[in-house]
Design a protein around this nucleic acid. Structure first.
Lengths: 205, 205
DNA sequence: ATTAAAATAGACATTGGTGTCGTTTTTGAT
DNA sequence: ATCAAAAACGACACCAATGTCTATTTTAAT
């Protein structure tokens, strides 16, 4: 009688596999990546990997969860600076993400959601919706706090403005990925959107 | 001695196959669609289809060309109404496209470009760039005509505004497809973007 | 009606991946 | 050192799709 093996070990191996998988996804995209690829990248055997994950879709979903854990929603941190400064800082952060090359995995996510949805007809993925709504409410609440603190006097509803910002950034991200930042002129566009936000949020001074 | 067969016939068959292919793409998405599917949908033999197209990527590219022929760029038609009315009318058209289900093929295109780019690393697709720039310059020129006619007094460059509009609509399209129009609240967002355009274009009256 | 080229059919070999399963190795409690 | 359970291995049977190739049918000019 002697049941076996460490508990932390399994989790580590799992994370190791997920990291290898991420490399593969970034290199090949979601749909073109194969179990084979991940097996090679992780330097593990077929049998082993299947004892951790059922299939490649499962792996991607676990990876998503993992990334979400890391994902600190910026606006949930109570800011020290003014509303406007914090907003602009966040937009600049997004700008840097769009331009940098580590948006690759972001694009894999887009591919994943897109193809998943294109297959399983008509039904929207509740997980994706939850993610989106979390971001929306985090920005909405941020705007609401700005109103409470009397730093802004928005001319449209907080939520509509939040949704608007997200759409714009998603579109800019997608187009820039497909076309390059020279073609989409990211900086000019960000400049425009900041201008429009000033007009719609009406920050004091 | 007697060479053979009608010439128009071939083209018709080609168009027929492309239409079937489009149905398949809409139903399954680009990457999940197979030659098999198209063969069945078109009710044609394996041998026949391969005498028209080399592979499924080839089919999709031909389909793209075909769709582009149909694609009338709205702004290239000289409008009868005022600048502002014409702009709003176009945005409403986009709004309807986003909400309607025939954005499915639009999403297949996105999937195609995305995965194509995710594979062939780093290099942007010149065809996609051409398409994008055509749209950009068509909107830009439209705005410029508005300026000439003294109907608007924009506070940012025409091109930056054009790019901004496209990004926003692309993002809204993508998110709405993935999440549904109830979640993205399309109408409210369109309302916001029109408001911002009024502030940035400064139409007379 | 004949005929040769073109168009179509569908069987086939091949490829590239999947998930399973029996075997071997490793693990850590005793 | 022993031992049973857990973990890892990798061969394998299977599947779905591809593109090719030979045979058959259709076409329209003669």
């Amino acid at each position: 009688m002697s049941p076996k093996v460490n508990n932390q070990y399994k989790r580590n191996k799992e994370l190791e596999i997920l990291q290898s998988a991420k490399n593969v996804f970034i290199r090949k995209g979601y749909l073109k990546a194969t179990m084979q690829d991940i097996i090679v990248e992780a330097g593990i055997s077929r049998g082993a990997i299947y004892s951790y994950f059922n299939n490649i879709e499962h792996i991607f979903e676990e990876l998503l969860k993992l990334e979400d854990e890391k994902d600190i929603i910026y606006f949930e941190i109570e800011g020290l600076s003014s509303f406007w400064d914090q907003l602009i800082e966040w937009i600049r952060l997004q700008q840097r993400n769009i331009v940098s090359t580590n948006n690759k995995f972001l694009l894999c996510k887009t591919e994943f959601f897109l193809t998943k949805h294109l297959q399983s007809n008509k039904t929207y993925n509740p997980y994706v919706i939850k993610r989106y709504e979390r971001l929306v409410s985090s920005i909405t609440n941020f705007i609401d706090r700005g109103i409470e603190k009397k730093e802004i006097y928005p001319l449209k509803s907080s939520k509509a403005i939040a949704l608007y910002i997200i759409s714009f950034l998603d579109g800019l991200m997608l187009d820039t990925f497909n076309l390059g930042m020279e073609v989409t002129e990211v900086n000019d566009q960000i400049d425009v959107v900041i201008f429009t936000l000033e007009n719609i949020l009406c920050p004091i001074k």
